[in-house]
Simulated assay, not measured.
Amino acid sequence: MEIRQLHYFLMLCKELHFSEAAFKIGISQPTLSQQIRVLEDELGVPLFDRMGKKTAKTEAGELLECYALQVVQQLDNAKKAIADLNDLHTGRLRIAVLPSDLDYRLTEILIDFRKEFPNTKVQVFPTIESLTRVLDNDVDIGVGLKVEADSRLERIPFYTETYSLFVHEQHDYAQKKCITAAELAEIPLVMYPQGKCGRDLIDKWCVKQGITIDSVMETGSATSLFQLVREDIGATIQPSQLIENFHSLGIRSIPIENAPTRELDIVYRNDRYLSKAAKAFMKRMVEMF
């Protein structure tokens, strides 16, 4: 059994279609079929059921997939560990991060990181599915809202922050020292659409406060929301620290009484080798926040 065959096998497990799997691997369909047959002959059991145009994993295929994923992961871990041992600082670091507001605060970290690891390619993926991306091995590190305990994950709580109301500097409430939930319910707001992490957190808080907020306009970008506030279309509720990024827009931040709060985690799979670069990046995140 060869590593190459396991890669072929895993791609077919993912696609469950010989033509699609062969295309993504970059080989012909007959070559893929032949390699899978060689694997089945060696193991003495069929790994896939071929039902016309449909392909499904057998029980043996499901079992081999579980072990093959571990083999491929451990081989990747070994390569990364050896590269670290040689202090090459090469390769890539893939990070899934909660979009819109957190990515505004990563620039400083990315600049410093680049100076120490100039040969490491960094890819930042804004997504609300950071946990899923980590579990699927699509990224090395996930940064987002606090997650539930999971035996597959290491979790590093690194920041807790409250939310504030952001208004135009000429807004009636611009000089207020604090605002109540009842007052929020009377203010036209520009917000993220429902389904976005930040919006769902605010909506859950509103339920606990016994209020309903009035969203007059919704966008999925923190930049556009603050531009709308600048034009006095409405106010917005965002993490308090964002005023540092948008202080030049003529916007004021007002603390909220019993404010909504969010807890942020860094997560990664505990069966993956974490490179020096990944550890250095996480250390910077914790120190900055």
Rank of each mutant, 00 (worst) to 15 (best):
M1R: 04
M1T: 11
E2A: 07
R4A: 13
Q5N: 13
Y8N: 10
F9D: 06
E15P: 04
L16T: 07
S19M: 13
K24I: 05
I25G: 13
I27N: 05
I27T: 02
Q29W: 04
P30H: 01
T31I: 03
Q34N: 14
R37V: 14
E40C: 11
E40V: 10
D41I: 05
D41W: 02
D41H: 02
E42G: 00
G44L: 11
V45L: 12
L47N: 12
F48P: 11
G52C: 11
T55S: 04
A56T: 14
A56N: 10
K57C: 04
T58A: 10
E59H: 10
L63H: 08
L64K: 07
E65D: 08
E65Q: 12
A68Q: 06
V71P: 14
V71Q: 13
V72M: 11
K80Q: 15
D87Q: 13
H89R: 05
G91P: 10
G91R: 09
R92W: 06
R92D: 04
R94W: 01
I95R: 05
V97K: 00
L98Q: 09
D101H: 10
I109G: 01
F113I: 04
T120Y: 08
K121A: 15
K121H: 12
P126W: 05
P126A: 05
I128E: 15
S130R: 11
L131Q: 12
L135N: 06
L135C: 12
D136F: 06
D136S: 15
D140Q: 08
V143I: 15
L145T: 10
L145A: 01
K146A: 15
R152W: 09
L153G: 09
R155N: 13
P157V: 11
T160A: 10
S164R: 02
F166G: 07
Y173M: 11
A174D: 04
A174K: 01
K177M: 00
C178M: 14
L184F: 08
E186P: 00
V190L: 04
V190R: 05
M191E: 12
P193M: 01
I202G: 08
I202F: 15
C206H: 07
C206Q: 07
K208V: 04
Q209C: 10
G210D: 03
T212S: 15
I213T: 14
V216L: 01
V216M: 10
S221E: 10
A222D: 08
L228P: 02
L228A: 04
L228V: 07
E231Q: 02
D232N: 15
I233A: 14
I237K: 08
I237P: 11
S240M: 02
Q241I: 03
Q241L: 11
I243M: 09
I243D: 12
E244V: 07
F246L: 01
S248L: 12
I251E: 04
I251A: 04
S253R: 12
S253D: 05
I254S: 03
E257I: 06
A259H: 01
A259Y: 03
A259W: 00
A259D: 00
T261K: 14
R262W: 08
L264G: 02
D265M: 03
D265N: 00
D265H: 13
I266E: 06
I266H: 05
V267A: 01
R269V: 10
R272Y: 10
Y273W: 07
L274S: 07
S275K: 14
K276M: 12
K279M: 13
A280F: 03
F281T: 02
M282E: 12
E287W: 01
M288F: 07
